[in-house]
Nucleic acid binder design. Structure first.
Lengths: 165, 165
DNA sequence: ACAAACTATCTCAGCACTAAGATAGTTTCA
DNA sequence: TGAAACTATCTTAGTGCTGAGATAGTTTGT
């Protein structure tokens, strides 16, 4: 059994035997899996006239609270992109009538972003197909293996300072 | 112990208890780890006037064979980007004198890309700092845990058809 | 009370990528 | 042999992001 990364590691052993390339065995695999996941998830988003960026915003609003409402800063922290990216995502979603931007009542610099009924309907339609696609992507591992994997990834995230907020 | 993704999963349970969001526990964590890894690796590349794209090309050439030489198609398969992206990456690297493009001797459509001495020197200088950075990113897991993680990721990649070529 | 420091959001130029398609050369096979 | 299918590479318009910085409003400390 060997995947593409095993070949890469062999090549490094042949060309640079002095180098311990083993960390690439983890980080290289994650990067490849990320690319494969992304490509497949994108196919599903496209069926519903969405892309990853729009889905992320709609899904974050959907799960955050019963009002489906957050500030741009809140969206930024959740999605790990810059404030400029959030502004542009919101421009697109607002133009499509999927979210609204309202001035904050407590802070005149602030904005409150809220899912419209149309946005709620769309994300609720896409969500089941999304987890379904994800589930198929993970079908190569058993339930026990998936739990083990989730645990290792959580430990790693915690060690890098990933927090709950 | 809980990371950001645990919060996300809790929120889904509260808002959409009918939905089994557990696949997000894996795919969401991989995506976050990918972003954190990328940011840190980029910092190291920048120290050497490089970016991820250029590093990928130089490293792939470095490990592939003793001649440090591949076709654009070979680079494309290894890096999971489109042919257009490879063309542009090679334009940049060629302009900096880090690789050469020579017409293939056997196929007049073909091109042979080769590391220059300057390119070889650069990648050999950066490589140890790169694996060092990766190693630090993984320091939160023991050697045994890393082996376990690599195995699970390999199984997943194989189940998705990732091949050695 | 007021200046300085800070915070929230937006704007925009520059960058690397994709998707589609152009160009040139090679292979297949009737 | 010659047409059709295929392959290798490059070109280009369009897209979404980052990084830097602008703008407006809030908080802090004296």
């Amino acid at each position: 059994m060997a995947d593409h990364v095993d070949l890469v590691l062999e090549q490094w052993r042949a060309r640079r035997p002095d180098l311990d390339a083993s960390p690439m065995g983890i980080i290289g695999r994650m990067s490849r899996l990320g690319a494969l996941f992304d490509a497949e998830l994108r196919r599903n988003f496209a069926k519903h006239d969405l892309d990853r960026a729009s889905f992320d915003v709609l899904a974050t609003l959907r799960r955050s609270n019963p009002e489906h409402s957050l500030t741009p800063a809140g969206l930024m922290h959740s999605s790990m992109v810059t404030s400029g990216a959030i502004s542009q995502r919101l421009d697109r979603l607002e133009a499509r009538g999927l979210v609204t931007r309202a001035p904050s009542e407590t802070d005149r610099r602030g904005v409150q972003v809220t899912l419209t009924p149309k946005g709620l309907e769309l994300i609720d339609k896409v969500l089941p197909t999304h987890v379904d696609t994800e589930s198929q992507l993970l079908a190569g591992l058993s339930k026990a293996e998936l739990d083990q994997l989730a645990g290792l990834l959580r430990t790693l995230l915690e060690s890098l300072g990933d927090k709950r907020d």
